[in-house]
């Protein structure tokens, strides 16, 4: 059977593709372009689609807005707080789960549970755990002689609270990806290392870590990108506020607030494009390094 594209096949394909392309075109592709243009609208009426003036004002505004810089800074703190810790913990747990142990399936199931639960509902549970007076966390810390921390009402502790919640929530996902990476490592390496008398730590350091580098890299990029987009946790943990005194305002919260709180669509679009740009850079790094790493 010859398999060359023909007009007839193209028409047939279009019929199959129409439903998906209509939705993706309208709600993904068009808005990517539209919001780029919107970020330059400085005087406009969106609902009538009238634009009276364009310019760089929105970008100038956000780059001069201390609140925007604060949101970038908070988001960076969040990324730095969540990603490395989460990766180290999940790698260790995944390595343990990859041993010959009993109840492996059960452990895996448990670690993944938070991932399938509603961020909003779980954040409200954590709000109760973080309660400064009656929360179990402060109670537990009391045994270590730590006096009660005002997790959610002290501006210094708002980000750590958010980071703890995010690590807890995302651990299971990383563990699953690490496990599938670990299963691709040839058991022969470990066998050979054992015969040579290498201990558990040496095997981990010299076999697991290097052979898992592409998985680790993938998880890092995905975690960084997802962490840049944190919003639901902030909203639910601090009851709709970006933390006490704006101390947990993230980029997406800033976008949300400019858009839905102040109805300033132009500024919100500009901020959204800055976020897109940051994520785009990480995606490029992933594609570039990812291609290089395929062939070992």
């Amino acid at each position: 059977m010859n398999d060359k594209p023909t007009m007839k096949k193209t028409i047939k394909a279009i019929l199959y593709l129409i439903p998906a392309l209509l939705i993706i075109g309208t709600f993904s592709f068009y808005p990517i372009i539209k919001s780029f243009f919107m970020s330059f609208y400085t005087d406009y009426d969106y609902f009538k689609d009238l634009v009276f003036a364009r310019g760089l004002d929105n970008y100038i505004f956000i780059f001069q807005d201390p609140e925007f810089w604060k949101s970038i800074q908070n988001t960076m703190i969040f990324v730095i707080g969540v990603v490395p810790l989460s990766i180290i913990i999940s790698l260790v747990i995944a390595t343990f789960l990859n041993q010959k142990i009993k109840f492996r399936g059960l452990f895996r199931t448990i670690y993944f549970i938070p991932f399938v639960t509603s961020v909003v509902a779980v954040s409200i549970v954590w709000r109760w755990i973080f309660h400064s007076q009656y929360g179990v966390l402060n109670y537990a810390l009391g045994f270590l002689g730590i006096s009660p921390i005002k997790w959610l009402s002290d501006p210094d502790w708002a980000m750590p609270s958010l980071i703890i919640l995010a690590i807890w929530k995302g651990l299971g996902y990383n563990i699953i990806i690490f496990l599938s990476g670990l299963q691709n490592i040839d058991k022969q390496y470990y066998l050979a290392a054992r015969i040579d008398g290498a201990g558990a730590w040496e095997r981990f350091k010299n076999i697991t870590v290097p052979l898992l580098s592409s998985t680790t890299f993938f998880i890092s990029i995905v975690s960084i990108i997802n962490s840049f987009k944190v919003f639901d946790e902030v909203f639910a943990l601090f009851g709709g506020q970006p933390g006490p005194a704006g101390s947990a305002e993230t980029i997406v919260y800033y976008i949300y607030n400019k858009f839905y709180g102040e109805w300033n669509f132009g500024v919100a679009s500009a901020a959204a494009y800055v976020l897109l740009f940051i994520i785009f850079i990480f995606t490029l790094i992933q594609l570039y390094v990812g291609k290089k790493k395929v062939n070992y």
């Binding site: 993706i24 993904s28 858009f259 959204a272």
Partner: peptide
Amino acid sequence: FYGRDIIFSILLGTMMVPGEVLLIP
């Protein structure tokens, strides 16, 4: 069909765009 690989790559490209960018439009 004609343009299959181009259309598919464009679709994959949209996957990288964070949903927050699409919110306002």
